[in-house]
Design a protein around this nucleic acid. Structure first.
Length: 217
DNA sequence: TCTAAGATGGGT
DNA sequence: CCCATCTTAGAA
Protein backbone atom coordinates (compact mmCIF):
# COMPACT_ATOMS: atom_id res chain seq x y z
CA UNK A 1 0.00 0.00 0.00
CA UNK A 2 1.33 3.40 -1.00
CA UNK A 3 1.39 6.22 1.48
CA UNK A 4 -0.55 9.13 0.02
CA UNK A 5 0.75 12.58 0.83
CA UNK A 6 -2.21 14.69 1.76
CA UNK A 7 -2.41 18.18 3.09
CA UNK A 8 -2.80 17.01 6.67
CA UNK A 9 0.97 16.58 6.94
CA UNK A 10 1.22 20.35 6.71
CA UNK A 11 -1.08 20.82 9.70
CA UNK A 12 1.63 21.63 12.17
CA UNK A 13 1.24 21.37 15.90
CA UNK A 14 0.90 24.94 17.18
CA UNK A 15 3.33 26.53 19.59
CA UNK A 16 0.71 26.18 22.33
CA UNK A 17 1.11 22.38 22.20
CA UNK A 18 4.76 22.72 23.22
CA UNK A 19 4.25 25.60 25.61
CA UNK A 20 2.57 23.48 28.29
CA UNK A 21 4.28 23.13 31.66
CA UNK A 22 4.39 19.32 32.01
CA UNK A 23 7.16 18.02 29.76
CA UNK A 24 6.34 14.43 30.73
CA UNK A 25 2.79 14.80 29.37
CA UNK A 26 4.14 16.31 26.17
CA UNK A 27 6.60 13.42 25.75
CA UNK A 28 3.67 10.99 25.89
CA UNK A 29 1.49 13.14 23.63
CA UNK A 30 4.16 13.16 20.93
CA UNK A 31 3.95 9.40 20.48
CA UNK A 32 2.12 8.49 17.28
CA UNK A 33 2.59 11.94 15.75
CA UNK A 34 4.46 12.46 12.47
CA UNK A 35 7.86 14.15 12.35
CA UNK A 36 8.38 15.79 8.96
CA UNK A 37 11.54 17.29 7.49
CA UNK A 38 11.94 19.02 4.17
CA UNK A 39 15.59 19.83 3.68
CA UNK A 40 17.34 20.26 0.32
CA UNK A 41 14.02 19.59 -1.38
CA UNK A 42 13.71 16.11 0.13
CA UNK A 43 10.56 15.23 2.08
CA UNK A 44 10.89 12.58 4.78
CA UNK A 45 8.30 11.53 7.35
CA UNK A 46 8.46 9.22 10.36
CA UNK A 47 5.99 8.28 13.07
CA UNK A 48 7.32 9.03 16.54
CA UNK A 49 7.44 5.77 18.52
CA UNK A 50 9.86 6.61 21.37
CA UNK A 51 10.52 9.77 23.41
CA UNK A 52 12.22 10.90 26.61
CA UNK A 53 11.35 13.85 28.84
CA UNK A 54 14.03 16.13 30.31
CA UNK A 55 13.14 18.75 32.89
CA UNK A 56 15.29 21.84 33.44
CA UNK A 57 14.62 21.94 37.16
CA UNK A 58 15.52 19.11 39.50
CA UNK A 59 16.56 16.64 36.81
CA UNK A 60 20.28 15.86 36.84
CA UNK A 61 19.98 14.12 33.46
CA UNK A 62 18.98 17.37 31.74
CA UNK A 63 21.74 19.42 30.09
CA UNK A 64 20.13 22.59 31.38
CA UNK A 65 19.56 21.41 34.95
CA UNK A 66 19.93 24.44 37.20
CA UNK A 67 22.47 26.00 34.83
CA UNK A 68 22.63 28.09 31.71
CA UNK A 69 25.39 27.63 29.14
CA UNK A 70 25.80 28.70 25.51
CA UNK A 71 24.86 25.24 24.29
CA UNK A 72 21.65 24.98 26.30
CA UNK A 73 20.56 28.57 25.74
CA UNK A 74 17.99 27.44 23.16
CA UNK A 75 16.32 25.28 25.82
CA UNK A 76 15.60 28.46 27.76
CA UNK A 77 14.05 30.04 24.68
CA UNK A 78 10.50 29.79 23.36
CA UNK A 79 8.67 26.48 23.12
CA UNK A 80 8.39 24.61 19.85
CA UNK A 81 11.99 25.07 18.72
CA UNK A 82 14.53 22.38 17.94
CA UNK A 83 17.43 21.72 20.30
CA UNK A 84 20.01 19.74 18.32
CA UNK A 85 23.42 18.93 19.75
CA UNK A 86 26.37 16.75 18.80
CA UNK A 87 26.88 13.68 20.96
CA UNK A 88 30.18 11.74 21.08
CA UNK A 89 31.36 13.96 18.24
CA UNK A 90 29.33 11.91 15.79
CA UNK A 91 25.62 11.86 16.46
CA UNK A 92 23.18 14.74 16.12
CA UNK A 93 20.44 14.36 18.75
CA UNK A 94 17.11 16.09 18.15
CA UNK A 95 14.97 17.50 20.96
CA UNK A 96 11.84 19.62 21.07
CA UNK A 97 11.97 22.57 23.46
CA UNK A 98 8.88 22.82 25.68
CA UNK A 99 7.43 25.06 28.42
CA UNK A 100 7.45 28.85 28.47
CA UNK A 101 10.54 30.97 27.90
CA UNK A 102 12.91 30.73 30.85
CA UNK A 103 11.91 27.13 31.67
CA UNK A 104 14.44 24.78 30.05
CA UNK A 105 12.46 21.60 29.37
CA UNK A 106 12.80 19.39 26.29
CA UNK A 107 11.68 16.10 24.79
CA UNK A 108 14.29 13.91 23.10
CA UNK A 109 12.89 12.09 20.07
CA UNK A 110 14.50 8.63 20.15
CA UNK A 111 12.94 6.54 17.40
CA UNK A 112 10.75 6.77 14.32
CA UNK A 113 8.84 4.31 12.20
CA UNK A 114 9.63 5.38 8.61
CA UNK A 115 6.48 6.52 6.82
CA UNK A 116 7.58 8.40 3.71
CA UNK A 117 10.86 8.99 1.89
CA UNK A 118 12.45 5.74 3.02
CA UNK A 119 14.72 5.65 -0.03
CA UNK A 120 16.15 9.06 0.88
CA UNK A 121 16.56 7.85 4.45
CA UNK A 122 18.36 4.73 3.27
CA UNK A 123 20.78 6.81 1.20
CA UNK A 124 21.46 9.19 4.08
CA UNK A 125 22.12 6.13 6.24
CA UNK A 126 24.62 4.82 3.70
CA UNK A 127 22.52 1.77 2.88
CA UNK A 128 22.87 0.28 6.32
CA UNK A 129 21.41 -3.11 7.07
CA UNK A 130 20.20 -1.79 10.42
CA UNK A 131 16.88 -0.04 11.00
CA UNK A 132 16.71 3.44 9.52
CA UNK A 133 15.62 5.58 12.47
CA UNK A 134 15.66 3.50 15.66
CA UNK A 135 17.84 5.55 17.97
CA UNK A 136 18.30 9.31 18.42
CA UNK A 137 21.47 9.51 16.32
CA UNK A 138 20.32 7.36 13.43
CA UNK A 139 16.97 9.12 13.35
CA UNK A 140 18.65 12.46 12.79
CA UNK A 141 20.87 11.03 10.09
CA UNK A 142 17.87 9.52 8.28
CA UNK A 143 15.85 12.74 8.50
CA UNK A 144 18.72 15.06 7.57
CA UNK A 145 18.75 16.78 10.95
CA UNK A 146 22.04 18.42 11.93
CA UNK A 147 23.11 20.94 14.53
CA UNK A 148 22.40 23.79 12.11
CA UNK A 149 18.71 23.23 12.90
CA UNK A 150 19.14 24.07 16.57
CA UNK A 151 16.92 26.98 17.53
CA UNK A 152 14.76 26.54 14.42
CA UNK A 153 11.01 26.78 15.00
CA UNK A 154 8.86 23.70 14.40
CA UNK A 155 6.17 25.98 13.00
CA UNK A 156 8.43 26.76 10.01
CA UNK A 157 9.06 25.03 6.70
CA UNK A 158 12.12 22.84 7.36
CA UNK A 159 11.04 20.64 10.23
CA UNK A 160 7.75 20.17 12.04
CA UNK A 161 5.45 17.72 13.78
CA UNK A 162 1.91 17.21 12.54
CA UNK A 163 -1.32 17.28 14.48
CA UNK A 164 -2.14 13.87 13.13
CA UNK A 165 -2.14 11.12 15.68
CA UNK A 166 -2.26 7.48 14.89
CA UNK A 167 -5.88 6.57 14.18
CA UNK A 168 -5.58 3.42 16.22
CA UNK A 169 -5.35 3.67 19.95
CA UNK A 170 -2.12 2.34 21.40
CA UNK A 171 -0.76 1.59 24.82
CA UNK A 172 2.16 3.60 26.18
CA UNK A 173 4.90 1.91 28.19
CA UNK A 174 7.22 3.82 30.52
CA UNK A 175 10.82 2.96 31.37
CA UNK A 176 13.96 4.62 32.66
CA UNK A 177 15.85 6.85 30.24
CA UNK A 178 18.81 5.49 28.31
CA UNK A 179 22.42 6.54 28.87
CA UNK A 180 21.87 8.75 31.92
CA UNK A 181 23.35 6.54 34.65
CA UNK A 182 25.40 9.52 35.85
CA UNK A 183 22.19 11.28 36.95
CA UNK A 184 22.03 9.45 40.29
CA UNK A 185 18.47 9.27 41.64
CA UNK A 186 17.11 11.00 38.53
CA UNK A 187 18.34 8.07 36.43
CA UNK A 188 15.46 6.13 38.00
CA UNK A 189 12.74 8.44 36.71
CA UNK A 190 10.43 6.53 34.32
CA UNK A 191 10.52 9.23 31.66
CA UNK A 192 11.20 7.15 28.57
CA UNK A 193 8.03 6.37 26.63
CA UNK A 194 7.38 3.94 23.81
CA UNK A 195 4.40 2.70 21.84
CA UNK A 196 3.75 -0.79 23.20
CA UNK A 197 4.62 -3.54 20.76
CA UNK A 198 6.18 -1.24 18.15
CA UNK A 199 9.22 -2.91 16.58
CA UNK A 200 10.93 0.38 15.63
CA UNK A 201 11.88 1.38 19.20
CA UNK A 202 15.63 1.64 19.85
CA UNK A 203 15.65 -0.91 22.67
CA UNK A 204 12.97 -3.03 24.28
CA UNK A 205 11.55 -1.75 27.56
CA UNK A 206 12.65 -3.51 30.74
CA UNK A 207 9.20 -3.69 32.25
CA UNK A 208 5.75 -3.97 30.79
CA UNK A 209 3.89 -1.56 33.01
CA UNK A 210 1.75 1.10 31.40
CA UNK A 211 2.70 4.75 31.77
CA UNK A 212 0.44 5.98 34.52
CA UNK A 213 1.59 8.21 37.33
CA UNK A 214 4.85 9.25 35.78
CA UNK A 215 4.22 12.98 35.52
CA UNK A 216 5.83 15.93 37.23
CA UNK A 217 3.15 16.69 39.77
C1' DT B 1 44.68 26.95 27.43
C1' DC B 2 43.91 21.97 28.70
C1' DT B 3 41.23 17.89 29.30
C1' DA B 4 37.73 14.49 30.47
C1' DA B 5 33.53 12.89 29.29
C1' DG B 6 29.35 12.43 26.78
C1' DA B 7 20.99 11.84 26.34
C1' DT B 8 25.38 6.71 20.57
C1' DG B 9 25.82 3.07 17.16
C1' DG B 10 27.62 -0.53 14.69
C1' DG B 11 30.57 -4.19 14.26
C1' DT B 12 33.19 -8.24 16.65
C1' DC C 1 33.23 -5.49 24.41
C1' DC C 2 35.36 -1.73 21.72
C1' DC C 3 36.06 2.54 19.80
C1' DA C 4 35.24 6.40 16.32
C1' DT C 5 35.20 11.45 16.84
C1' DC C 6 34.76 16.41 18.51
C1' DT C 7 32.15 19.80 21.13
C1' DT C 8 31.41 21.46 25.53
C1' DA C 9 31.94 22.62 30.29
C1' DG C 10 34.65 23.27 33.89
C1' DA C 11 39.09 23.43 35.82
C1' DA C 12 43.87 25.37 35.98
Amino acid sequence: MVFEINTSIYEKLPRSFYERADVVEIAKDLLGKLLVTETEGVLTIGKIVETEAYCGRGDKACHANEKRTPRTEVMYGPAGCAYVYLCYGIHHLFNVVTNVEGQADAVLIRALEPVYGTEAMRERRNHTKAKLASGPGTLSQAMGIKTNLTGVSLTGESIWITKDSNENAFEILADTRIGVEYAEEDALKPWRFVIAGNTFVSKPVKNKSPANHTGLS
